[in-house]
Amino acid sequence: MKIPLPTHSAPVSVGKVLCIGRNYADHAAEMDRDVPDEPMVFLKPPSALIRSGAAVQLPSQSRDVHHEVELVAVVGRKGKGIARSAALDHVAGYAVGLDMTARDLQAEAKERRHPWSVAKGFDTFAPLGPIQPVEAVGDVQDLTLQLTVNDETRQEASTRHQIFPVRELVHYCSQIFTLSPGDLLYTGTPSGVGPVQEGDRLHASATGLDPLSVSVERPE
């Protein structure tokens, strides 16, 4: 998939989809997990991406798929070992996104001490809203995230409650991976995660960002 970046004249291909687990204390608590002392990073494949107006496809392997609304930082400049002071200079824009999770498969993987790749990586499991340039967003650590399912609010929180702010996440990830234009960083979800069903309509929003709307389908 290619996405438009404010810093490029032509769309660029998505590279890595980096995701952060347990970046809000209230979400860690609802999952009965400890608050991490450093960012928890996992990956989704680019094939998990869909854009607003598309549909999340519920996989036959799972009967318990959950929504997780997140702020997404879009990398615009290549960097490795980026200093904290320069981290936000490597972000071209932001979007609201959803980290869809097959919770039953994730729980089974945790019990077996296996990775989460299957539970997180199905096609359509990384919806991504329209990308807005950095200058249109304002203070990225003071945005209100919200998710409604069938017009009922399920999640609502401020990014000021992130355990690791965006600056720290970019710095940390760049110590491990070379970040490249088109990489996406899903920065974690607040509390209120829950199951979705066939026919549901999900609407995700964040201050200063265009909303993301997707439906939910279960293919025959």
Score class of each variant (00 low, 15 high):
51 R>S: 14
9 S>E: 14
176 I>T: 14
91 V>L: 03
45 P>V: 01
2 K>F: 10
177 F>E: 13
218 R>H: 04
82 I>W: 06
194 G>S: 06
158 S>H: 07
122 F>P: 03
82 I>D: 04
188 G>I: 00
113 R>G: 09
90 H>M: 02
19 C>H: 08
21 G>Y: 07
19 C>V: 05
120 K>N: 01
61 Q>K: 15
46 P>F: 06
201 R>K: 12
85 S>G: 08
104 D>M: 05
163 I>L: 12
24 Y>K: 06
107 A>W: 12
170 V>G: 02
126 A>L: 05
68 E>T: 14
60 S>C: 13
16 K>F: 00
213 S>V: 06
168 E>W: 04
132 Q>E: 15
122 F>G: 01
166 V>S: 04
113 R>P: 08
127 P>H: 02
116 W>M: 01
87 A>K: 06
106 Q>C: 11
159 T>Q: 01
137 V>G: 11
182 G>D: 02
106 Q>Y: 07
23 N>H: 05
202 L>C: 03
96 V>C: 08
23 N>Q: 07
49 L>H: 06
105 L>V: 12
109 A>S: 12
37 D>T: 15
210 D>P: 02
95 A>C: 11
138 G>T: 04
123 D>Y: 13
161 H>P: 11
32 D>E: 15
220 E>S: 09
93 G>K: 11
120 K>D: 00
124 T>Q: 03
40 M>K: 13
73 A>L: 11
98 L>F: 07
85 S>H: 10
187 T>P: 14
151 D>Q: 07
101 T>C: 14
170 V>T: 00
165 P>G: 04
107 A>I: 12
74 V>C: 09
109 A>H: 05
44 K>V: 05
201 R>N: 11
157 A>G: 06
84 R>W: 13
171 H>W: 09
22 R>K: 15
74 V>M: 09
44 K>P: 01
23 N>Y: 00
209 L>H: 05
145 L>V: 05
43 L>V: 04
188 G>F: 03
214 V>F: 04
79 G>H: 11
195 P>W: 13
109 A>V: 09
55 A>M: 14
74 V>P: 07
144 T>N: 13
190 P>T: 07
42 F>G: 00
79 G>K: 02
123 D>Q: 07
111 E>N: 14
203 H>K: 15
100 M>Y: 12
174 S>M: 07
54 A>I: 11
52 S>I: 01
13 S>E: 14
135 E>F: 00
52 S>L: 07
88 L>K: 01
112 R>F: 03
187 T>I: 04
163 I>F: 00
172 Y>M: 02
102 A>K: 11
107 A>R: 12
27 H>W: 05
184 L>C: 09
52 S>Q: 12
17 V>P: 03
81 G>T: 03
16 K>H: 08
105 L>H: 12
108 E>P: 10
46 P>K: 04
199 G>L: 03
22 R>E: 02
175 Q>H: 13
9 S>C: 14
77 R>P: 04
62 S>M: 15
68 E>L: 07
80 K>Y: 10
166 V>Y: 03
36 P>S: 06
206 A>F: 06
89 D>N: 11
190 P>E: 00
92 A>F: 05
130 P>L: 02
216 V>F: 02
148 T>Q: 10
31 M>I: 11
34 D>S: 14
129 G>L: 03
